[in-house]
Simulated scan of single mutants.
Amino acid sequence: MFGISPLGWIHTLGSLPAIPVAFYMFVRYGRIVPRSVPGVVYFVSMVIGAVTAFLVAHEPVGYVIGAVTLLFLLAGYGVGRLPGLGRAAHYIETVCLSLSTFLLMLPTVTEILRRVPDGHPLVTDLHAPLLVGSQAGLLVLLVVGLTAQIIHLRRQGRLSARPGRR
């Protein structure tokens, strides 16, 4: 079905939980929160997706996306454990994990448009206007989302820095 190999299904189904979990955390917390139950689900699902991308990718860009996703994911989950970064750790964590979500959604949208409906996909060319527009929309969503997250983090920092606040 959809021309997906058994390994491709493992890749797809393994990384699929990251999408609703990321959406939930963005709505609930305004960002991905690594030290939470949904954060653990996101991490495991993203690692499965990124690692198996190396096994299912047919284009060199797939390997790059897998490697960069792992890099952002590990940086986002690891930066909070580094001493001496203070509030900067929250910013780095937020940016890295938002970029990991973008790198999840970019090939997801591309593959959906290139495979659905089965046998007669919406897009057959990587330069099709629908595909390029969808990818551009994801980029706009990333820029707007990161801007909102950084503003939110700055406001939180100012509120916690006020005298009499804890």
Rank of each mutant, 00 (worst) to 15 (best):
I4S: 00
I4R: 00
S5W: 01
P6Y: 05
P6L: 01
G8N: 07
H11V: 01
H11M: 00
L13I: 04
L13F: 11
S15C: 09
S15F: 05
P17R: 02
A18Y: 01
I19C: 02
V21L: 07
A22E: 00
A22M: 10
F23M: 14
Y24M: 11
Y24A: 15
F26G: 03
V27G: 05
Y29F: 13
Y29W: 03
G30S: 06
R31C: 13
R31M: 15
R31L: 04
I32P: 01
I32R: 00
V33Q: 13
V33Y: 06
P34V: 02
P34D: 02
P34I: 02
V37Q: 14
V37Y: 14
P38N: 07
G39M: 07
V40P: 00
V40M: 09
V40G: 10
F43H: 03
M46P: 01
V51R: 05
V51H: 04
A53G: 15
F54W: 04
F54Q: 01
L55F: 12
V56D: 03
V56A: 11
A57L: 10
P60A: 04
V61N: 13
G62E: 03
G62N: 08
Y63I: 08
Y63G: 15
Y63E: 08
V68I: 09
T69E: 00
L71D: 05
L71G: 14
L73P: 02
L74R: 12
G78L: 03
V79Y: 04
R81W: 06
L82V: 13
L82R: 14
L82I: 14
P83K: 07
P83Y: 08
P83N: 10
G84D: 07
G86E: 04
A89C: 08
I92W: 08
I92R: 15
E93K: 15
V95I: 13
C96W: 02
S98I: 08
T101C: 08
T101E: 04
F102T: 04
L103N: 02
L103K: 13
M105H: 09
M105Y: 10
E111I: 05
I112P: 05
R114Y: 12
V116G: 06
V116T: 12
P117T: 02
D118A: 12
D118T: 07
G119H: 01
P121Y: 00
L122P: 12
L122F: 12
T124I: 10
D125C: 14
L126K: 10
H127T: 14
H127M: 15
H127A: 11
A128N: 15
L130K: 09
L131K: 06
V132Y: 05
S134P: 06
S134R: 05
S134F: 13
Q135A: 11
G137K: 13
G137H: 13
G137I: 15
L138Q: 04
V140S: 09
L141C: 11
L141P: 09
V143R: 07
L146D: 12
I150P: 04
H152C: 12
L153N: 15
R155I: 07
Q156P: 09
Q156A: 15
L159T: 13
S160I: 12
A161H: 06
P163E: 10
G164D: 11
G164N: 06
G164Q: 13
R165T: 12
R166H: 12
